[in-house]
Design a protein around this nucleic acid. Structure first.
Length: 280
DNA sequence: TTCCAGGTATGCA
DNA sequence: TGCATACCTGGA
């Protein structure tokens, strides 16, 4: 993949295994939405437009320095997803059948605090509402950023959310999750190193550590581990995956996850995306 | 009007 | 330890 600057942005030439329509619509990220022929959103305090043009990808606005310091890791460009896909499809006829519709899927490496709060909000909620509530939260407590498409907002800091009252959070539509967000933000604000220690732990210990936060159970913990802490063996067991395990594979989620080892998270995302769009 | 949505916390046996 | 139940809210 050749990477070069062009007209205030960065072009990724021959980025065959990169499809923003799949990456941003497989449930791992709530802040990028389609605008025209691109996907626009905010991560790491930067507004970014992502456009697929044939086999090329355009990131805008973006310098080579920003690409190397932020977006290379965010989009996990150093992993060979074609090989990863081939490995999880080996000896799995159903996943192999679903693979063509998942071409271009990648696991993002998002900010841990944003992922923690976002997936607390996701509990017993639907994706449209999760997106809406997170945008309101960012507009109310996040830093304003100028984006090519207008005003945008960074995800709030732990301090900013900790200073919000439960009533203010409830007014944004968080429902009963208001107190979970408040308590978790206070915990992170009072110990800034608390999240950075978790990726160094093994999977079970990391999951246990995350479950100490109010509003975080096993499923939310696995989402945080997979989407922000590089724990590729994490296998979030949501309602979609339970259905797939039962109806497609005739087994329970733990048995299914064990088939894929360190690639379990990628297999889970393939199943989630395929199941949601009835291609499985 | 009722049900459902990428679950979690709590109480009880 | 395992199970049942309550929980905000908006769209279908």
């Amino acid at each position: 993949m050749r990477v070069y600057e062009k007209s205030g942005g960065v072009v990724l030439e021959d980025a065959a295994w990169f499809d923003p329509a799949i990456i941003f619509d497989c449930g791992q990220c709530f802040r990028f939405v389609p605008k025209g022929d691109a996907f626009c959103g905010v991560a790491f305090g930067r507004a970014l437009s992502v456009k697929k043009d044939g086999e090329d990808v355009h990131l805008f606005p973006c310098t080579m320095g920003e690409f190397e310091s932020i977006w290379r890791r965010y989009f996990d460009f150093d992993r060979d997803y074609e090989a990863l896909c081939a490995s999880v499809c080996e000896n799995d006829a159903r996943l192999k059948e679903a693979a063509p519709c998942c071409k271009g899927l990648r696991i993002l490496r998002q900010e841990p605090f944003e992922t923690l709060i976002s997936f607390i909000i996701s509990a017993n909620n639907n994706i449209a509402r999760i997106r809406s509530v997170i945008e309101k939260l960012c507009a109310a407590y996040g830093e304003k950023i100028e984006a090519p498409w207008g005003d945008a907002y960074a995800f709030p800091t732990a301090e900013a959310l900790a200073s919000a009252s439960v009533e203010e959070l409830r007014a944004l539509g968080l429902g009963y999750r208001d107190q979970y967000v408040k308590k978790t933000a206070m915990a992170v604000a009072s110990d800034p190193q608390i999240l950075s220690q978790i990726p160094t732990m093994d999977l079970d210990a990391a999951r246990k550590a995350l479950c100490q936060f109010h509003g975080v159970g096993n499923k939310v913990a696995d989402c945080i581990l997979l989407f922000s802490m590089d724990k590729t063996a994490a296998f979030p067991k949501d309602v979609w995956i339970r259905r797939v395990a039962q109806e497609v594979y005739g087994c329970d989620c733990d048995t299914l996850a064990a088939r894929y080892g360190d690639a379990a998270g990628f297999a889970q995302q393939m199943m989630f995306y395929s199941a949601r769009w009835k291609k499985f």
